[in-house]
């Protein structure tokens, strides 16, 4: 296995991206002053209103179209960025998971 093959391996690329993201987060964390949790600091921001979490609908009944679009979008992205035949089974597994998600979505 050549060095570039190792470097471009999806797992390595994913790990590097995760580390870059984590690095930016850690830098921000180190530079920011210590957080003071006062009053409603951790509450959902709603233009100052004191909203209760329970009052929000958590079901996705209105978002079927958006959900299926996102799923197919990600599937298309995965298919479009497949680099070799070696991970075809990964794509197949991903499509299967996507299919299961769509079935669950429209089950009711």
């Amino acid at each position: 296995m050549t060095a570039s093959a190792v470097l471009y391996h999806p797992v390595v690329v994913f790990t590097l991206c995760m580390m870059a993201g984590w690095g930016v987060y850690a830098l921000g964390r180190a530079l920011a002053p210590a957080s003071r949790v006062i009053g409603g600091k951790l509450k959902t921001y709603a233009c100052g209103e004191n909203v209760e979490g329970e009052s929000f609908p958590t079901a996705y009944h209105l978002y079927h179209a958006a959900f299926i679009f996102t799923l197919l979008d990600v599937v298309a992205l995965v298919l479009g960025t497949v680099t070799g035949t070696a991970i075809v089974w990964m794509v197949a597994a991903y499509l299967l998971v996507g299919l299961i998600a769509i079935v669950i979505l429209f089950k009711d």
């Binding site: 920011a32 002053p33 003071r36 009053g39 409603g40 509450k43 100052g48």
Partner: peptide, 16 residues
């Protein structure tokens, strides 16, 4: 009317 809301918004901003 606005006081509590202003305080809440102020608290929700990051320091400093």
């Amino acid at each position: 009317q606005i006081r509590d809301r202003v305080v809440r918004v102020y608290e929700q901003a990051a320091d400093p």
